[in-house]
Design a protein around this nucleic acid. Structure first.
Lengths: 347, 347
DNA sequence: TTGTAGGCGTTATCAG
DNA sequence: CTGATAACGCCTACAA
C-alpha cells in the first residue's frame, strides 16, 4: 500500500500535550509549565519544548483547559431584538461588549431570540457570566440568574418586582438636566420639550431631568410647552408645529427622529436656527444622525448615548462579578453633551 | 461552629453525573443513557434517574461533553465592522446566522476586531466551524482556515489569489437583470442607471446585470444614461439631476441612499413618479428605508437583499461542511424584487 | 438492561 | 527543576 503525504494538515490530528512531550523527551507537565509558567523550567528544557511546540504547531485545547480550570473565559450576551429599537442601537452596544470582553481576554457567545437560555447559560457552564440587553427581557429569566448568584449585568435600568438587579444604564435624568441648564444659562426660559413615552422608563427619565432643571432654576413648568409622545419624524414635525404656537425660544428633543422632524418644521415655518429658536437634539441613532447632518447644514447641539463605552463598562462589570468582586448594583453612564451651532445666548 | 443554610444555591456546586448516579442508586452510565438514549433504559430505572436529575437540577456540562465528543456545537462568526457599511446591514445578517445556528442546535461565538483569531478559532477547538463576514477580511486569515480544511464559509463573493473559497453572496447580476427586464417589459428603453463604485465588486456586478439585460433585449448601452458613482443621498440627488437631462423614461438606483436622493431630485424637477418617470430603487438598509417610506407617500418598486435568509443559508452551509458533506464552493442568493407603485407601462 | 474500564486534554498537588 | 498521579465530567466500548 502506498502512503501519500498531503501538504494539507489533517484537522483531526492536532497535537496534544502528550505528543509534544514525547517529541521533546519530557513529561507533559513540563510542557504544560513551559506554556503557563515558563520561568519554572530550565532554559535548556524550555527550548527543547518550545521547539517541539512549534514543530507540531501545538495549541492548547480550550475545552480541556476550561474543564479543569472551571472557567471558560467566555461571556454570554443575551440580546433581545425588537422592532421598536433601531438595530444599530444594539449593534453598537454589542461592539462595546465585544471589545471590552476581548480586552479582558474573553470571548463572546451570543444568545438571541433564545428560549430557555437560562439552562444553556447557567447550567451548561459554557459561559462564566452574562450581559443582558434589550427591552423585552423576561423578568423570570433574570430572576433565575440572580437567584443562583450567577454573574450577570443588565444594560438598561430595570425594576423586577422584589429583586434589585445589577444594571448599568444611561443617565437620562442628568443628561437632560445638563441640556436644560445649558439653555437656561444662555438666558432661555421658554424651553419647549418634545418627549416620547411616559410609560417607557428612559423617556420618562428624560422628562424628569428637564423638569428638575426648571425647578432648580425656579422656572415654572409649563405643560403647554411639552409634547409628550413623539417617536417618528412625522411626530416630531407635528409636535414642533404645535409647540411653535407657544413661542418658545428653545426646544429640547428626545430622540433622533423627532429631532429631524422638529428641525424641518421650524424651517417650514420660516424660522432660523439658532437666530429665532435654539434647539438641542438627541442622537440615539448614529446612522440616521449621520445621514441627517449630511442633508442639513447645521451642527446640532445634542445629547448622545456613549453606546460603545456603555457596552464596554457593562462587560467590565460582568467580569468583575465573575472575578468574585463585590460591586454596586446600580451604575449610570453619563450622556455625551455635544455642543454645536444650534443654540444661542439671548441674554 | 455554626452551619448556616442559605436558600441560594451555591453556583460552585452544580451536580455532576456522579452525584445523580449516587442519589438514584445506579451507575453513571445509566444516568448518561437516560439523558442520551432513554429507550435503552428500563422504565423503572429511568424514572428513578429522572427524579434524581430533577431533584439535583442536573444539566450536562457542555465542556466535558464537547471534550469527549470532539465537537462543541459552537459556530464562530468573524465580523469585520467597517465605517462604510451601515451597521444594520451586518446586524441583520448576523441575526440570520444566529437563528440558523440556533435552529440547528449551535451556539454562536463572535469574533470581531480580532487579531490572530485564527489560533483562537482553529486550534483552540472552541468552534466547529466559522462564518466570515465583512469587506475587510484578510485574505491570509481565510487562507489559513482554507488550507487546513477547517469548515468555513464567506458571506460575500471573494477572489483570493490562487484559492477558490467557499462563499455565498447576493446575486446582484441576476437581480439587476430582473429589474431591468421588468422595465423593458413595460416598454422602457431609455433606462438610466445610478451605480456606486466600479471597483467594489458588488456594485460592479449590478452594473453588469443592467448591461446584460439591455444587451439581451438588443437595447444599445448608452453611457450617457449611466452615473457611475453615487453612495450618499446627495450623490443620488446630483446624479439624478444630471441624468434627467437625458430624458430617461425610467431609472434604476443602486442603493438606498441614492434612491432617496434620486426621488427628491425627480420631485424637485416637478416630475411625477411613475407618470413622468419610473424608478426602481434599492433597499440595502432596512432602517433608512423605513424612515424614508414614512416620509414619502410612495411604495417604491425595489430590489432587496434577503439578509436574514442570507445569514441563515450561510450557517446551514457551514454546518453542512462541519458534518463532513461535500458542497459546492459558490452559492448565490437571489435578491427579492418587490413591486410597488413606482413603475408604469409606457406601451 | 446495566455496569466497568479507559480515555478525551488539561492542570493541581505532591514527590523526588 | 521535573515527573507521577489524580482529578475535571462525560462518553465509547466492552463485559456481565
Amino acid at each position: 500500500m502506498l502512503t501519500l503525504t498531503f501538504k494539507v494538515i489533517d484537522m483531526t490530528k492536532r497535537a496534544s500535550l502528550n505528543e509534544v512531550a514525547k517529541l521533546a523527551g519530557v513529561s507533559i507537565m513540563t510542557v504544560s509549565r513551559v506554556i503557563n509558567n515558563p520561568q519554572q523550567v530550565s532554559e535548556k528544557t524550555r527550548r527543547k519544548v518550545e521547539d517541539a511546540i512549534k514543530q507540531l504547531k501545538y495549541y492548547p485545547n480550550a475545552l480541556a483547559q476550561s474543564l479543569v480550570r472551571k472557567k471558560t473565559n467566555i461571556l454570554g450576551l443575551v440580546m433581545y431584538l425588537e422592532e421598536e429599537v433601531h438595530p444599530s442601537f444594539y449593534h453598537e452596544i454589542m461592539n462595546g461588549v465585544q471589545s471590552g470582553a476581548s480586552a479582558l481576554g474573553y470571548d463572546l457567545l451570543i444568545f438571541s431570540q433564545y428560549r430557555n437560555y437560562d439552562e444553556r447559560i447557567i447550567r451548561s457552564r459554557l459561559v462564566d457570566g452574562v450581559v443582558f440587553m434589550g427591552v423585552h427581557l423576561n423578568a423570570e429569566d433574570i430572576r433565575r440568574v440572580h437567584d443562583v448568584k450567577f454573574p450577570y449585568i443588565l444594560i438598561g435600568k430595570r425594576e423586577i418586582n422584589d429583586i434589585k438587579p445589577y444594571f448599568i444604564a444611561p443617565d437620562y435624568i442628568e443628561g437632560l438636566k445638563k441640556a436644560t441648564n445649558y439653555l437656561i444659562q444662555l438666558g432661555h426660559s421658554r424651553i419647549a420639550f418634545i418627549g416620547a413615552s411616559k410609560k417607557h422608563e428612559p423617556d420618562y427619565d428624560k422628562l424628569v431631568g428637564y423638569q428638575q432643571a426648571l425647578y432648580t432654576n425656579q422656572i415654572l413648568y409649563n405643560p403647554e410647552l411639552v409634547f409628550e409622545h413623539s417617536t417618528t419624524q412625522r411626530d416630531g414635525y407635528n409636535a414642533m408645529k404645535k409647540l411653535l404656537q407657544q413661542k418658545p425660544t428653545a426646544v429640547i428633543v428626545n430622540n433622533t427622529n423627532s429631532t429631524i422632524g422638529a428641525i424641518t418644521a421650524i424651517r417650514d415655518e420660516g424660522l432660523r436656527i439658532p437666530d429665532d429658536i435654539s434647539i438641542i437634539g438627541f442622537d440615539d441613532n448614529q446612522e440616521l444622525n449621520k445621514q441627517f447632518s449630511h442633508l442639513i447644514d447645521l451642527k446640532v447641539t445634542r445629547l448622545k448615548i456613549p453606546k460603545l463605552q456603555l457596552g464596554e463598562r457593562a462587560t467590565k462589570l460582568a467580569i468583575s462579578l465573575i472575578d468574585g468582586n463585590e460591586i454596586e448594583k446600580e451604575h449610570f453612564m453619563a450622556l455625551d453633551f455635544l455642543v454645536g451651532d444650534s443654540c444661542r445666548s439671548i441674554r
